[in-house]
Structure formats: C-alpha cells, structure tokens
Design a protein around this nucleic acid. Structure first.
Length: 155
DNA sequence: GCCAACGTTGGC
DNA sequence: GCCAACGTTGGC
C-alpha cells in the first residue's frame, strides 16, 4: 500500500467538510496539474491512505487521514462548461484529468502543523515533497518511513 | 525549441 | 497583501 498527501484549502473544502459529507466520502475532483494527475492516475490504488493537508489558512498542516476508496476515473468536471474546473481541451473520449474517491478515515489526535513538520526538514523529513522549496503540488507521495515518522508526532 | 509574459499557489 | 516559485501559453 502506498501513502499520499492531499492538499485542500479549508475555505474551499476542509477535513471537517469531508466528515460531514454523505457517507463521509467525496470525489477528489479539480486537480489540474499533470504531475499530480499522474500520481492519481498511475500511482493511487483503492485502499491507499493519505494525509489531508490544509493549505492557505492561518495554521497550515495535516488535519487527518483519508482512504482512497476507488480506482482513478475521468474527472467529469472537466467536461462541464458550468464547472469552475471546466477544460475545453479534455475530450471525454480521451480524458485529460482524473480523480479518485476519498473517504474519511480518522482525525489526528492533534493537527500536525507545517511549522512542526519543518523542524525535521533536515533529517527525518528531508525527503518529504511537501517541504521541498517552492513545492506547489496538490497531490504528492509520502514514503512509508515518512508516514510512520509523521504519525509518531501525533502524540 | 526557446523564452518572455502571464496566472496560480501558498506561506508569511 | 506581498512575493517567490513554478507551470503554462504562445509568438517567433
């Protein structure tokens, strides 16, 4: 099983929003970056776990854990002219963008802030994509070692 | 294929 | 609100 980190702006869709969604699940739509698309389409599998990260907010950090509960499938918001994520170049016969469904797994005992993660950017989390300078990916892999280390910060 | 212009992201 | 970093676009 692989591990991931998914970013979302809580003012748009927060971890709490996911918890109160029907069946506590949602399609992770609107990803419009090729590298992120490739992680979703080619890397994710049903059953994988991901950190739910809150960005662009007063205290950026990991709020909880979600599970990938579907295989990747075409992001149909790209085909909808009324959608904010509409992309004229995505042809239903050859979809450009993909998404998965994610489900609420559990909250963390306490949120793990970006500030805290940065304390380890020179050792245990030196390879964490989130901490790479200038990183703007909204979907990125987390190694098993990084995953375990971050969870150890929970208590 | 190069690269300037532009738009977006996201921490601060 | 600022600005650095980065991806995308489009003229050439």
């Amino acid at each position: 099983m692989r591990h991931w980190l998914l970013k979302s702006e809580p003012s748009t869709f927060s971890f709490e929003d996911l918890k109160s969604s029907p069946k506590r699940r949602t399609p992770w739509d609107g990803v419009r970056n090729y590298q992120a698309r490739n992680f979703i389409r080619d890397g994710m599998a049903k059953g994988d776990l991901a950190f739910f990260y809150h960005s662009s907010c007063p205290e950026p950090g990991i709020a909880g854990i979600v599970r990938i509960v579907s295989a990747a499938y075409p992001d149909d918001t790209a085909f909808d002219p009324r959608s904010k994520h509409f992309d004229l170049a995505s042809d239903p016969k050859s979809p450009r963008w993909y998404m998965v469904d994610v489900a609420y797994e559990r909250a963390l005992k306490k949120p793990i802030t970006l500030r805290e993660l940065k304390k380890y950017e020179d050792d245990s989390l030196a390879g964490l994509a989130l901490l790479r300078r200038g990183n703007r990916l909204s979907v990125m892999p987390v190694s098993t070692a990084e995953w375990k280390f971050i969870l150890s910060l929970e208590t």
